[in-house]
Computed example of a mutant assay.
Amino acid sequence: MSAAPVKIVLLYQSLLGIYGDHGNAVVLTKRLKWRGIDAELISVDPGDPVPADGAVYLLGGGEDTAQITAVNQLRADGALFSALDDGAVLFAVCAGYQICGHSFTIGARDEVIEGLGVLDVETRRGPERAVGESLSRWTRPDGATSLITGFENHGGWTTLGSDATPLAAVEKGWGNGDSTTEGAVQGRVIGAYPHGPILARNPELADHLLEQALGRSLDPLDLPEIEALRTRRVSAVREGRP
């Protein structure tokens, strides 16, 4: 009997998908299929039940009202929490990252909104908006390092608590707002600010998510054209080119 397909669950694309972050789900699905692993991409719309048997769940970027709606619906549904308890991976970008924390603020009055609480972080409006190409250095679980490149565009600045650790150290850009740390990791929940989509720009990070979800290492993919594009992108960021 063949193994069940690995489920990649894209959450609320219509709410949290204004920066093309749905591409992260496509990248994960493709990288599994290129290895001969059966994969299924499931897109969940607001109001639809969230499957509790996903391997990787994805949240993207969006605006204030969308964040509130997403938090309320995910909390009411409850399946994401059950999936995380069962060992699923959650990867959240920008606004999706912010709502994973304990709280975040919206609007000119900086109204504090309760988040999902799956990351020990708090987000508040920063003194200026973080916009531009970013580059950070990620130390992988095996101790090796890899660069993470992307485009950030966020007004919230995020502070990590003691239960969360930074995903990466900033080389160029704002990151969490301090120009020192980028993103947060807590167990199998990872948040990050860059778009791009980030997993298309950073295939090693994509494979890390898949390896966490599968509980095993994956054979490397020989895709020189992707590596060439990545090398040019990193060089452009360092040199300040578009």
Rank of each mutant, 00 (worst) to 15 (best):
P49S: 08
V50A: 03
V50I: 11
V50H: 00
D53V: 00
D53A: 03
G54Q: 01
G54P: 04
L58I: 11
L58P: 06
L59K: 03
L59Q: 00
G60Y: 05
G62T: 04
G62K: 02
G62F: 02
E63L: 07
D64Q: 10
T65L: 08
Q67W: 09
Q67A: 13
I68A: 12
A70V: 07
V71P: 01
V71W: 02
V71C: 04
N72E: 14
N72D: 15
N72F: 04
L74W: 05
A76G: 10
A76E: 15
D77R: 00
D77W: 02
D77K: 01
G78T: 02
G78P: 03
A79E: 01
L80I: 10
S82C: 03
A83C: 01
D85V: 03
D85M: 00
G87M: 08
A88E: 07
A88Y: 06
V89P: 02
V89M: 00
V89E: 01
L90F: 15
L90W: 15
F91D: 09
F91V: 04
A92G: 05
A92L: 05
A92M: 04
C94Y: 13
A95E: 06
A95W: 07
G96M: 02
G96T: 05
Y97R: 05
Q98W: 11
C100E: 02
S103V: 06
S103C: 10
F104I: 11
I106S: 10
G107W: 04
A108T: 13
R109L: 15
R109Q: 14
R109N: 14
D110I: 00
D110L: 09
E111M: 15
V112M: 06
I113R: 05
I113N: 03
E114F: 07
E114T: 14
G115I: 12
G117Y: 02
G117P: 04
G117S: 04
V118F: 05
L119I: 01
D120W: 13
T123P: 08
T123E: 11
T123A: 15
R124W: 04
R125K: 14
G126A: 11
E128W: 14
E128R: 14
R129H: 14
A130Y: 13
V131L: 15
V131K: 08
G132N: 04
G132H: 07
E133K: 13
L135D: 08
R137K: 11
W138S: 04
W138E: 02
W138N: 02
T139M: 11
G143R: 05
A144G: 09
T145W: 12
T145L: 10
S146K: 02
L147I: 11
L147D: 15
I148L: 15
T149R: 13
T149L: 12
G150N: 13
H154R: 00
H154L: 04
G156E: 15
G156Y: 11
G156W: 10
W157A: 11
T158N: 06
T158Y: 08
T159S: 11
T159M: 01
G161N: 10
G161A: 12
G161I: 09
S162M: 14
D163V: 08
A164W: 08
P166G: 09
A168C: 09
E171C: 02
G173L: 07
G173K: 06
W174E: 13
N176W: 12
S179H: 03
